[in-house]
Every structure is written in structure tokens, then in C-alpha cells.
Design a binder for these strands. Structure first.
Lengths: 206, 206
DNA sequence: ATCATATGTTATCGTTATTAACATCACGCC
DNA sequence: GGCGTGATGTTAATAACGATAACATATGAT
């Protein structure tokens, strides 16, 4: 049922198709691609793609996986560059998220489309879960360094941080962030928001 | 060029079509509707719709306007029920946003699709701007009541509050909020986030 | 060598968005 | 009251789309 790594004498069509689709998405500015165009770019007939993907949505799901890997790698690179347990690391992870949303705009939008069948969505959710473990680890380290004797949930803190970064990123993605005030800057907004959450977490006594 | 209020002896097709589209979207669970289905539901041929909408995207834009009006009315109802200048009002506006995202799921998703041409998007941005003035007013009142002698920007505060509510709403919309921890609750997360922002705003000295 | 299977092709189908050509109805003008 | 003009509807057509069936070919195990 899965021919994930199966090659073929004409080439590795599955991966070729995914990359072709990703390039088309990256160029077009949106994610409305056609099987026909992907096939043409891969130098193959439209029907050939159906040997590797159940339907168009399955192809898009594969592209989403690729996009998610790209995002995860960026986040891991940030984590490797900064000291664990610091506020700066958490801020920079958020900034990285914003930058991905900006310079890989199509991919970011694609990641949050709500399409696909239940099975495809379940797999995607799992992939995202894996991807965002970087953030959970950062939250754990921060709490361990700053509030070692308390039981604040790192997952809960990570979810809060993800929410604010995601909110700013999606509003910016829709060019809604500065409709009230043109001087508003996404990165500064995120730094302030992150700081507010962390301060609030440290202040909370239980 | 605009036949917004033009009736016809066969009926008010423009509004009929918008409502038909909205109903289809509400039922289908996504926003992949076809002109053919909308026309069928309106009891009219497909081509007839093109007398009232430039293209499919223009019809969807009209549905988005309708959805936005619905959201705005809910927010205004909340504002009317609570005392201006209170944290509770701000929290309840956010909760209202979350609830709209949940029980009008398709409409909420539709609102943040990035499709349509520049002109359509500009109009939508303007409509959203109008809609969210309720939040700005709440932020102004809050600052006026709690920090009258300071120059914290109410627009900036409103944008922060919108970001956190929007982030939680969109993650929940994608069923991503509880993938780390099933006990996480969107409403509680929003109340905590709102409180963190307001506290941070009051604490900031300049 | 053979043959099952994986992988490709072409031909086709039903659906879609959109447009052109034509039809009809409402309503102002003489 | 007839008449025509424009707004609004129809049918028919086109091109692109996703998807599938029938057929073709190359691989690799036996």
C-alpha cells in the first residue's frame, strides 16, 4: 500500500513529483497546483502520478511533509545555536517561525489548509507533533532553569508560546497585522508576547 | 458595475445565491463548493450567477462578508452585555471569537483562506478592519480605566489580544491544540493569555 | 526464458469555471 | 398602448481538471 522508497528504472518518480509540486507551489504564490502541471514538470504523463499517490490530496500531503521537515530543520538549527533554558532561545524559535511563514509563504499556508481525508490529516498531525517537540524541549529547559521547584507544565507553556507565534504568523500571512497601525512589527510583537507569557509563568505561584 | 441591491422579477438572485453558497459551505464542512451546486440550490442555471458575480471568487468574497457580519454581531452583543474597561469584557470577546471558530467552523476557515485577487482582498481587509474595531474600543476603554496617564497604544494592545485569540482559534480549528496534551482547554488558555498580556501592559513603565 | 508485478502510456469520463449566443421580462418613453 | 432597451435568464460550447480503465513495457525473481 506504501511505495515510499520504491525506485523505478525511469527514475524516482515519487520524490521527483513531490519536488516538482513543491517548486510549482513555491513559484505560483498559492497552492492551487494541477496534477497535469506537476506531471509535465516531472516529464511524465498525468496518470503516472496515480501509481504513487492515491489522489491529488495525497500528493499535497507529501509536500506538506516536506515543508514541515524544512521548518523543523530551521527550528533545530536555532536550538543548536542558542543556550538551552534561555528566554532568547524561545524568542528566536518564534522569530524563526515568523520568518518561515514569510519567506516560505506558500508552504506555510499549505501547512494549515484544512483539506484531506481523516487518515491523511491524522498523519499530518503526528508529523507536526514531532516537529514541535523542539519547542517543548525549549520550554522544559526554561522552566527547569527558572522555576525548578514548581509544577508548571512545559507542554502547556509551549502551547501558549506556539499559539502567540502562530497567531502573529497567520495574521501577518493574511496581511492583517498592520491594518490598524502600519508601524506594528511582527517580530517586536512576538518578542513582547513571549516575554509577557514567560513573566506571567514565573510570577504565577501555586 | 455593482448590482448590489438590484432585484429581479424572478427573485433576488444575488442574495439567494450568497445564502445558498453559505448553506452549502455550512453543511459540507469545507468551502469547496461549485458554481453548479450553488446554482442548482438557487434553482437557476450556472451561467445566471455570472450576471451577479464576476467569478466564483467574488461569490466566495460575498459569503465571507456575510460570515464577517455574523462574527461582528456576536462581538457587538458581547460588548453590549459587559462593562467597558473591564478585563472580563476583553476575555469574553476572545471566548466569543473561539466559539465562532468552533460552531461556524467552515465560515471561520473561509475567512482566512488566502485566495481572490488584489481588489477582492483589499475589500475584505477593510471589512475585517471595521469588524475588529469592537476590540480596539475595548482595549481603549481598558487602558483608559487602568492606565489613564500612560501612552500605551490601544491599537497595539488590541493587536496583541487579537493575535493570541487568533492563534488559539486557528490551532484549535486545525485540531492541533491538544496534540501535545489532551487536557489543554482552548478557553482557559485564552483567559490565561489575555491576563498575561494585560498584566504585562500594566506593569510596563515608560 | 518466463512470468508476475511495478510502473508507465493513451484514451476516456464526468465535473468544473467561464464565455458566447440567444431568449425573455420589466420598465421608461412616445 | 406599443416599443425598444437593458437587465436578467437560458442553452450550448470550450478548455482544464481529477480520476480511471485498458493497454504497454521494463524489472527482477524463479
Amino acid at each position: 500500500m506504501n511505495e515510499i522508497t520504491t525506485p523505478y528504472h525511469h527514475g524516482d518518480l515519487r520524490n521527483t513529483a513531490i519536488i516538482a509540486a513543491a517548486e510549482l507551489i513555491d513559484q505560483s504564490g498559492n497552492y492551487e497546483i494541477s496534477i497535469a502541471n506537476v506531471a509535465k514538470r516531472a516529464g511524465v504523463s498525468s496518470a503516472a502520478l496515480y501509481r504513487h499517490f492515491e489522489d491529488k490530496e495525497a500528493l499535497l500531503t507529501a509536500v506538506r511533509e516536506l515543508a514541515l521537515i524544512g521548518l523543523m530543520q530551521r527550528l533545530e538549527a536555532i536550538a543548536a545555536q542558542h543556550e538551552q533554558g534561555t528566554q532568547l532561545l524561545i524568542e528566536e524559535l518564534g522569530i524563526c517561525y515568523l520568518q518561515f511563514a514569510e519567506d516560505k509563504r506558500s508552504f506555510f499556508g499549505l501547512l494549515w489548509e484544512d483539506r484531506g481525508n481523516m487518515e491523511q490529516r491524522r498523519l499530518e498531525a503526528q508529523a507536526k507533533r514531532t516537529g514541535f517537540e523542539v519547542l517543548i524541549k525549549a520550554a522544559e529547559s526554561y522552566l527547569c532553569a527558572h522555576k525548578p521547584d514548581n509544577d508548571v507544565s512545559p507542554v502547556r507553556l509551549a502551547t501558549q508560546l506556539w499559539s502567540i507565534a502562530h497567531g502573529i504568523a497567520t495574521l501577518e500571512h493574511n496581511r492583517m497585522l498592520d491594518i490598524f497601525d502600519e508601524t506594528i512589527n511582527a517580530e517586536q510583537l512576538l518578542r513582547d508576547g513571549t516575554q509577557a507569557f514567560l513573566r506571567n509563568t514565573l510570577d504565577s505561584s501555586s
